[in-house]
């Protein structure tokens, strides 16, 4: 997921005959929002993308997920996706997950509110977050 070095994706059309280079969807296109999200996921052991903030959640599903993390006494980073619709678009593109909230631990998607709740009730969540 990390782009550690400039990869040689920009094949110059030396012998090129392709008229449609599809530049907009190319992976070489700079995408600062996506990069920032990917970096945040990598850098925080536990990170929650939510609507609103832990202090003032803007959606019941986000609120419930925060409450579970707090019940487990798990330190977590939180990102409010509401200020810019592109955050949600890029997050979902990275995670292949359509809904909010999204909880990540150790760089992996744990799930949304349903899965987090199920794992909390079964006791699996504490282990996944450690």
């Amino acid at each position: 997921m990390s782009s550690t070095e400039p990869s040689p994706v920009r094949d110059l059309p030396m012998a090129g005959n392709a008229p449609a280079p599809a530049a907009e969807t190319s992976s070489g296109e700079p995408n600062p929002i996506r990069d920032a999200i990917a970096e945040a996921i990598e850098q925080h052991a536990v990170i929650l993308f939510m609507k609103g903030t832990p202090e003032a959640p803007a959606c019941g599903f986000s609120a419930r997920t925060v409450a579970i993390l707090e019940a487990l006494d798990t330190p977590f980073a939180a990102v409010d996706i509401l200020p810019d619709p592109r955050i949600r678009e890029e997050l979902s593109a990275i995670s292949n997950w359509p809904t909010i909230p999204q909880l990540f631990a150790n760089g992996e998607l744990i799930g949304g509110c349903d899965i987090v709740s199920e794992m909390y009730e079964s006791g699996e969540l504490a282990e996944a977050l450690s």
Binding site: L109, G111, G112, I115
Partner: peptide, 10 residues
């Protein structure tokens, strides 16, 4: 996994 199961439905 649960995630994969939910993705199938989504």
């Amino acid at each position: 996994s649960r995630i994969e199961q939910h993705r199938l439905v989504y």
